[in-house]
């Protein structure tokens, strides 16, 4: 037998074709695939056996029941998660993703299910305290924002603030604090921010108030939340489920279920169960 180059080429092409079509995406009528990080307590977390659990997992189970679809959850690193959705690797992302104008250019969202703003966490022994703790600032209010930022920047001068990469908090820090000479350090994984806050590499961390609350639950003796809660502007309009652009039908289905859960108090009850407070908006 003579092996020629073209035999090889043909075999290679055939193999490539099998690989490419071997895992056809979401054949009609199959389960919907939702991606999450599994490392963003208490929204989504991973048990040692790989099971995903948390506020969003309970909420999604209820949404699926009401909207009448079957689904599958997969864990995915945040780095590249939106890109994976755009490329059609899964149908939706449920990972406390906030609705922002920039993201709306490339993806669509359901109705939001949390509203809580974003704030800072510091270690108690650092002695850092930001002004305005307990108040909330809407970034659409320029005067109030400028005043609050000036005060915060004065305290954080020469310090390092850590944040999860490509989040609304990272956008906020880039826009408001980086120009004032404060060092911003971005982390590919959310939990690593708290790790470096705890061991003293960071002077402060910024995240959503709910995420910080989950961190403080375990570290109440050593760490504390500080500074005002920021919302609006680059902080977007609350977290929602993300779907591919042009998949409005799926978003509508999810939104309708969220609406009914909000109406009969199920959403608030779930929030109380996981956060201890109601962080969901009145839909």
């Amino acid at each position: 037998m003579n092996i020629t180059r073209s035999t090889f080429l043909r075999a290679g092409l055939a193999a490539a074709a099998t690989l490419a079509t071997g895992a056809p995406l979401l054949a009609q009528g199959k389960k919907l695939v939702f991606a999450t990080e599994g490392a963003f307590p208490p929204f989504n977390m991973t048990k040692p056996d790989g099971t995903l659990y948390g506020f969003e997992m309970d909420m999604l189970a209820e949404i699926a029941k009401r909207a009448g679809f079957e689904y599958e959850l997969i864990a995915q690193a945040w780095d590249g998660m939106i890109q994976g959705l755009i490329d059609g690797k899964y149908d939706a992302v449920i990972d406390s993703v906030t609705i922002t104008a920039k993201r709306l250019e490339v993806v669509d969202f359901s109705l939001p299910y949390t509203t809580g703003g974003s704030t800072f966490a510091v270690m108690k022994e650092s002695g850092i305290a930001l002004p305005g703790t307990g108040t909330s600032i809407n970034l659409d209010d320029a005067a109030a924002t400028d005043a609050a930022i000036a005060q915060i920047a004065a305290v954080l001068e020469g310090k390092t603030v850590g944040v999860h990469v490509s989040t609304i908090q990272a956008d906020f820090l880039d826009k408001y604090l980086a120009p004032r000479g404060i060092t911003i350090r971005t982390y590919p994984n959310g939990p690593d921010v708290y790790q470096d806050l705890s061991n003293g590499r960071l002077d402060a961390a910024m995240a959503s108030a709910t995420n910080i609350a989950a961190f403080l639950e375990k570290n109440a003796e050593t760490a504390t939340a500080t500074g005002p809660a920021f919302s609006g502007g680059v902080m977007g309009k609350g977290a929602a489920i993300v779907v591919q652009k042009g998949k409005g039908e799926l978003a509508d289905k999810l939104s309708a279920a969220l609406q009914s859960m909000s109406d009969d108090g199920t959403l608030a009850a779930l929030s109380n169960q996981w956060f201890g407070i109601n962080v969901t908006p009145k839909l």
Partner: peptide, 11 residues
């Protein structure tokens, strides 16, 4: 480069 990707998504 990684930071720029998360800003613009033009990976």
């Amino acid at each position: 480069a990684r930071a720029a990707i998360s800003e613009t998504w033009r990976a």
